[in-house]
Design a protein around this nucleic acid. Sequence first.
DNA 1: TTAAGGTACTTTGTATTGCATAGTACCTAA
DNA 2: TTAGGTACTATGCAATACAAAGTACCTTAA
Lengths: 115, 115
Amino acid sequence: MKIENTKAQMRKGLLELCILSLLAQKDAYVSDLIFDLKQSQMIVVEGTLYPLLTRLKNAGLLNYRWEESKTGPPRKYYGLTDEGKKVQQELLQSWDELHQAIDHIIHAKPRTNLK
Amino acid sequence: MKIENTKAQMRKGLLELCILSLLAQKDAYVSDLIFDLKQSQMIVVEGTLYPLLTRLKNAGLLNYRWEESKTGPPRKYYGLTDEGKKVQQELLQSWDELHQAIDHIIHAKPRTNLK
DNA sequence: TTAAGGTACTTTGTATTGCATAGTACCTAA
DNA sequence: TTAGGTACTATGCAATACAAAGTACCTTAA
């Protein structure tokens, strides 16, 4: 559906900020992240997160360690690098500017026609 | 630059909402829109807006009329169709949900590790 | 010991849109 | 008639969310 498609477009660029923000608070593996995102009404699936995490790790923003699990295979726990923390702050700033801009546009009063 | 690139990604899907919202208030042509967006600290150029407006018109959300100008060529003034108004409201709802989700994620307290 | 189910991860290709750029056309003024 | 400014058209690229198919590891049961 069109609106669903636009919602997916809206998440472009913002999902990275969400992931970095969650990992700024605490190391996590993919199921943790999916759970936390869901708590905030952001529904994302594994097929989206694994490639994103790989991309962020390759960009030097994340590191990971393997941790045994009692219930299944070992898990990859991701955490932020120092660079990741820096980029997370920068993206927060970008997000702040963006959403203020959008709120301003959405709630703007009709401009007077001075032309 | 990486942050600039991510900012562009963040605008995906949101620019449509901005344009529909501006046109919900008042018909406009491209320079009007660029000006209004700039007032809200959203910098967008013509090469971005013309294709977007064409896409929205072809999707049935906009209509336009030509208006003579005293200073140059005629201008295309865009306005919302009824369908456009409806979609604008739906996108507003999507935006509201998205930004609440993101704010929730950004400001979440670290979860307790109950596992 | 083997097999099945569950969990975790990898890989790949598609769809979509913001953006940049090159080009065309119309208008006014000199 | 020409040049500059304004307005618009067209096209292709880059980047990411997503879907889907696949592989691998672990536990449990037979």
